[in-house]
Amino acid sequence: MAQIHLVKLSVGTESVEDLAAWQATAHAQTSDGLPRHVTRMWPKKEAELLAGGSIYWVIKGSIQARQRILRLDEVDAGDGLRRCAVVLDPQLVRTSPALKRPFQGWRYLKPEDAPRDLTAKRAADDDLPAELSAELARIGVL
């Protein structure tokens, strides 16, 4: 089975650390303590996502990190609408920055179009300011 990923804006976060802090709150976790992102739409490509797909997080205009998708849970908020909780591996993996224009919801991302993971050495480097990182990504340096 082919694998596919999701791309999602991390609204309101300034850094990967901000995203990790949000995911550590009880509101952002499943009952078994895993981070989740709740969305109104259920992905039509569920099987491809669960075949090793990840969610790639856009922070400050560029993809900066990813998390492996573990499962999709149905969420009932009591209003009769079916929602989807994308349940994630707690490990945030930093990626090479890739510019992304604003969009609503989430988008599918083919594996061949996904930014590569940073090496452990690069992931431990100090973060560049978001604007500098985005500009370096735009010209193909990062």
Rank of each mutant, 00 (worst) to 15 (best):
S96E: 12
A47K: 11
T25H: 11
K8F: 13
R122F: 05
G80N: 03
P90W: 00
M1P: 12
L81T: 07
L19Q: 03
G53N: 09
W106A: 14
A77Y: 00
D79Q: 06
V11F: 04
L34G: 01
G80V: 04
D76Q: 06
D18V: 08
E14W: 02
R94W: 01
L132S: 07
K110A: 15
E135Y: 05
G105R: 08
A51Y: 04
S62A: 13
K44Y: 10
R36Y: 03
Y56H: 14
S133R: 05
R36D: 03
G61W: 01
W106Y: 15
L88P: 01
E14K: 13
G53Y: 01
R83H: 12
T119Y: 08
A51Q: 09
C84L: 14
L19T: 03
G53H: 02
Q64S: 05
A134G: 08
R83M: 15
L19Y: 02
W42A: 09
F103A: 09
L6M: 15
A123V: 10
D73A: 11
M41K: 11
E112D: 14
Q23E: 13
E74V: 12
A120I: 06
D117W: 04
G52K: 07
G61T: 05
I139T: 11
S15D: 08
P35F: 04
E131M: 10
D117I: 07
D73L: 11
G80I: 03
Q64F: 00
L128H: 04
A123S: 15
G140C: 11
R116F: 01
W22I: 15
G12I: 10
L81P: 00
S96Q: 13
Q29P: 02
P35K: 02
R138L: 11
T13R: 12
A137T: 07
A85W: 04
V86Y: 02
I139F: 11
K121M: 13
V93A: 07
L19V: 06
A114K: 01
T30H: 09
L128N: 04
E131D: 15
R83A: 10
K44S: 14
Q29G: 05
T13Y: 09
